[in-house]
């Protein structure tokens, strides 16, 4: 390349650079107005590309934020689940305490109304579904409990103490086949012996066929068996079957106490003077 041409090219480059730089610098002193053609070209060409890129970036950013947020929400959710489980178990404990409180309150009221020395006991073992229907309570000889003492709940008779240990006592429930309680139909004083049939029912035995016993009659203790004081609620007559050829009628009685869900009982240490409301007036309940 000839030397003059090389010089000319250098000059041309310098002039072009200078011109371009002057143009760019001159833009600093232009009043804000519409962009010139070159600026418009750059903006119009790259603008859409930058716009799309920005949108794409924002979308990715949102995904990332959503993911992070989701992770955070998941962690929070786990924490809340644990918290809820803890609160639920606490609530169950409170509910249990509330129910226990209600049961004990009823039992306390009952004890006060009995005006007799009693021992409150909790059911430790419930063996109502076996051959022998008994329960174990947490009061025994040390607490003054002795065999044949009546055991009652706030709704009526539970059974009586079969045998005792130092700390515990075994109670024979009304529903046991070997249980026998001298009983009366409260309405007309018809007498019979109440014994167990199955886990939920008893039978009032030895009631002659010509006696008037109806479903709904309340059966109470007679007080003549040497164990139970008279007038304690035993159960309600559920079904009466009369066979003309038989000497006795078949009377099915449902105990007033729900023996399968028993939790607290009272053991009567002496024969009380029962209040009137426990003796009369609740036959149809």
């Amino acid at each position: 390349m000839p030397d003059w041409l090389r010089r000319m090219r250098l000059v041309a480059v310098i002039v072009a650079m200078g011109g371009a730089m002057l143009y760019i610098l001159s833009l600093n002193f232009r009043p804000p107005a519409q962009m010139d053609r070159l600026q418009r070209t750059v903006v119009e060409t790259l603008g859409p590309l930058l716009h799309v890129s920005r949108k794409a970036t924002q979308t990715v950013e949102k995904w990332v934020q959503s993911y992070v947020s989701l992770r955070h929400v998941q962690e929070e959710n786990e924490l809340l689940k644990k918290h809820r489980a803890s609160l639920e178990s606490e609530l169950v404990r409170y509910q249990e305490a509330f129910l226990e409180n209600q049961r004990l309150r009823r039992l306390l009221d009952f004890r006060d109304s009995l005006q007799v020395e009693t021992v409150a006991a909790e059911v430790v073992v419930q063996n109502a579904a076996g051959w022998s229907r008994t329960i174990i309570v947490n009061k025994g000889y040390r607490h003054g409990v002795q065999p044949d003492m009546p055991v009652v709940g706030d709704e009526g008779v539970v059974g009586y103490v079969l045998d005792v240990s130092e700390q515990y006592a075994r109670v024979l429930l009304l529903t046991d086949r070997d249980s026998a309680v001298d009983a009366l139909v409260q309405r007309n004083r018809v007498r019979g012996i109440l014994g167990g049939v199955d886990t939920d029912t008893c039978e009032l035995r030895y009631v002659r066929s010509n006696q008037d016993v109806r479903p709904g009659d309340l059966v109470v203790t007679s007080g003549k068996d040497g164990i139970f004081p008279g007038g304690l609620r035993l159960g309600v007559v559920k079904q009466v079957t009369k066979d003309p050829s038989a000497l006795f009628q078949q009377i099915i009685v449902v105990p007033t106490v729900q023996l399968s869900v028993l939790q607290e009982v009272l053991i009567l240490k002496s024969l009380p003077n029962f209040p009137v409301q426990w003796l009369e007036g609740t036959a149809k309940e």
Binding site: I24, L25, L27, N28, M35, Q39, V43, L46, L50
Partner: peptide
């Protein structure tokens, strides 16, 4: 870069 910045031309 200058165009999209809009100021400090150059």
């Amino acid at each position: 870069g200058d165009v999209f910045q809009g100021r400090l031309w150059g």
